[in-house]
Nucleic acid binder design. Structure first.
Length: 658
RNA sequence: GGCGGGAUAGCUCAGUUGGCUAGAGCACACGGUUCAUACCCGUGGUGUCAAGGGUUCAAAUCCCUUUCCCGCUACCA
């Protein structure tokens, strides 16, 4: 049996709380372009993607929708899968965290880690600073006290399971230092090191009791496995991994044995921490090898302001595909995303790219080449060998591109790789200008030269189109079909002239990419936007916010709190702080200084004169070096927007709130 | 507040270990061409390389200071 090198790539699994927008879709397309290229390079590839389907948010959403959580995620997961299919992503495995084999293994993993002591049942036995609401490992404490506020830390009481991280920290640091390619882009490595690894990790809470929709901890009723052990494990359970070593086989093959460790976890930069710290530690605890590389890709952002469904400006892949076609959308997201910085997508930019690169440079090139071949040569371009110096320039450029593309792709610089391919098409257009086939066509004695010129063009386009396959598979197929030839293999691009001389091209060239009118497209985008906003309106997600429930308190507990109306008589910004305002608050005959993190929502000037609700008897603390003697109460919505709470009628400063 | 990364043409960015008149794409303007989807080709830059100082024969590049942006993180009683 041929011993091909394997390549295992995974994307993050998409959370099934709603339809994925173009930014989520980008990840799947990026992954797809990478694996398609690896296949071209001859690797035995496995590409896994899927959906993450547990958690409180889904429990709540399904309840609102009046269906069971399973029904809810079945629906959303199906939608996500259909968008991945629409985008032509060639995944080998679509895993769902509600799949039974996955759930079973997660339970076994959890149990194994528990039995060997890597997971322990805690009662927040770590050092907990109540005022700071934070946990600290003992190594983080300063003189046994909270490193932030310097106060005593105590154990807290809530019951939960924790993954012990400290045991493996040194090994992980060592691994990251000796494997510079492990975290990509490399700049993220410092962030992980400096913010988490070097200061010391606090143990990760891996179970919850506050909701039910999750994988139960089978030896402790009431606990469900919280997100990370559940979600991250998909990368191995999807290969049929079994904790006891009885890996499930797929058509006789032990996929886990064959494909693990993964070559690349492709994820968004926001979850890099989980993939480069918690996941490796889980794997170490399971005594499994670590993935070779984790790439936290940047985001594809939407241009016009913050996206929101109610504004109707969320861009979805299926809307784009309807207007532009699959490959145009693939081209756009891949090309517009640099390696490290966020990219931007708008309808205008889409049209611009579509017109200038796809329609003009590529589409028109194919079209004019085929048209001339038909017009002057009855569709048959033979290599008559009538060469001129300019031909060599074309050939050497074309033949230099494959290696450049391979290099760019090996560093995952997909955008640059596509740009390289397009240099072929640009050179071809120039070549046409240089050789002027329409002039040759008028001279009977130049027929052979003309034929050679068109042959060179067709050969160049064949190579270019073949190189495009990873990025725009349908376009590759369409071009090659029009040229009536086969896809050229990557290792077969070292010499010029593979196109079978004398082949007849199609006599009915089809437009590959239609030029679009920006105004028309924007009008269409407007329609989509309006429809979206209307849908959001009638489907109005009731603005209900659920937060974690706290334990019941007694009236005595409540009586300990002293609330009064306070009048803000002066207010200024706290220098050196992004969020803090420092207010002088009149409460009865005294004045307290209170610092609040509301600068984003209130200016210092507008604060003055407000009468607000104040928690008066809170122990004073220093914030950013400024003393704060109480708390201004605020309401907070799901996006973190704040609104001060004030008495409904005018009340004097100092009035008790009870 | 801590750590890190930036600031180069109207826009998006390249610029390797300091080294010739600082580059590319887009956009714009003009010229050429007509096979093609009004397309393609060519030509066109007075840029304080954020500001100031320093090292050097030589600085966009190295060092210091300042300003402004961004990322992660902490804080946000």
């Amino acid at each position: 049996m041929e011993d091909k090198k394997t390549y295992y790539l995974t994307t993050a699994i998409a959370y099934t709380s709603g339809k994925p927008h173009i930014g989520n879709t980008y990840e799947a397309v990026l992954a797809d372009s990478i694996v398609r290229f690896k296949r071209q390079q001859g690797y035995d590839v496995r590409f896994q993607t899927g959906t993450d389907e547990h958690g409180q948010k889904i429990e709540i959403k399904s309840e609102e929708a009046g269906v069971t959580p399973k029904q809810f995620v079945d629906d959303v997961s199906g939608k996500i899968k259909s968008i991945w299919d629409l985008m032509n992503t060639s995944y080998d495995k679509f895993i769902r965290t509600t799949d039974d084999y996955h759930e079973k293994q997660v339970q076994k993993i959890f149990k194994k880690l528990y039995e060997q002591g890597d997971i322990y049942k805690g009662y927040y036995e770590g050092m907990y600073c109540t005022p700071c609401e934070s946990f600290f490992t003992s190594s983080q404490l300063v003189d046994g006290k909270c490193p932030d506020c310097g106060r005593e830390c105590q154990p807290a009481k809530e019951e939960a399971y924790f993954l012990k991280l400290s045991k493996y920290t040194d090994r992980l640091i060592e691994h990251i230092n000796t494997h510079p390619e492990f975290i990509q882009p490399e700049s993220r490595k410092n962030e992980m090191m400096n913010n988490f690894l070097l200061p010391g990790l606090q143990d990760l809470c891996v179970s919850r009791t506050s909701f039910k929709w999750g994988i139960p901890v089978d030896f402790d009723e009431g606990h469900v496995v919280y997100v990370w052990i559940d979600a991250l494990s998909n990368y191995i359970t999807g290969l049929g991994f079994d904790v006891d070593g009885n890996n499930a086989l797929e058509s006789g093959t032990d996929l886990f044995e064959k494909f693990w460790p993964a070559d690349l976890h492709l994820i968004g930069k926001d979850i890099l921490r989980f993939h480069t710290i918690y996941w490796p530690i889980m794997l170490m605890a399971l005594n499994l090898p670590l993935p070779k590389q984790v790439f936290g890709h940047p985001w594809l952002l939407q241009g016009e302001g913050k996206m929101s469904k109610s504004k109707g400006n969320v861009i979805y892949a299926d809307d784009l595909v309807e207007v532009f076609g699959v490959d145009a959308v693939r081209y756009f997201v891949l090309h517009e995303m640099p390696f490290e910085n966020d990219g931007i997508i708008t309808w205008e930019l889409m049209v611009e790219r579509m017109n200038s690169e796809l329609a003009n440079t590529l589409g028109n090139l194919v079209n004019r080449t085929i048209s001339m071949t038909n017009k002057y040569l009855d569709g048959i371009a033979e290599d008559k060998g009538i060469a001129e110096p300019v031909d060599e320039e074309l050939k050497s450029l074309v033949l230099s591109v494959p290696q450049k593309v391979i290099d760019k792709m090996s560093y995952l610089h997909v955008s640059d790789a596509i740009t390289e391919v397009f240099t072929i098409f640009k050179r071809c257009n120039k070549y046409i200008d240089e050789t002027e086939p329409w002039v040759l066509g008028k001279q009977e004695d130049k027929k052979d030269r003309l034929s050679t010129v068109l042959y060179n063009l067709i050969e160049s386009i064949t190579i270019g189109a073949s190189l495009l396959e990873a990025f725009m598979p349908e376009t590759t197929e369409k071009i090659l079909a029009q040229l009536n030839t086969e896809k050229r293999a990557l290792d077969n691009m070292t010499s010029f002239g593979g196109y079978v001389s004398g082949t007849k091209v199609t006599d009915k060239p089809e437009i590959l990419f239609m030029r679009l009118d920006v105004k028309e497209i924007l009008a269409k985008a407007d329609e989509i936007s309006t429809a979206q906003a209307e849908a959001a309106e009638c489907n109005k997600e009731e603005n209900i916010i659920d937060i974690d429930e706290k334990p019941q308190i007694t009236f005595e507990d409540f009586e300990k709190l002293q609330f009064q109306v306070g009048e803000i008589i002066a207010c200024e910004e706290v220098k050196k702080s992004k969020k803090l305002l420092c207010s002088q608050v009149k409460i009865g005959s005294t004045t307290k200084q209170i610092v609040s993190g509301i600068k984003q929502y209130y200016s210092a000037e507008e604060m003055v004169g407000k009468k607000v609700m104040v928690l008066v008897n809170l122990k004073p603390a220093k914030l950013a070096g400024v003393l704060s003697e109480g708390m201004l109460l605020c309401a907070e919505d799901a996006d973190g927007n704040l609104a001060l709470v004030a008495p409904e009628k005018d009340m004097p400063a100092g009035a008790e709130i009870c």
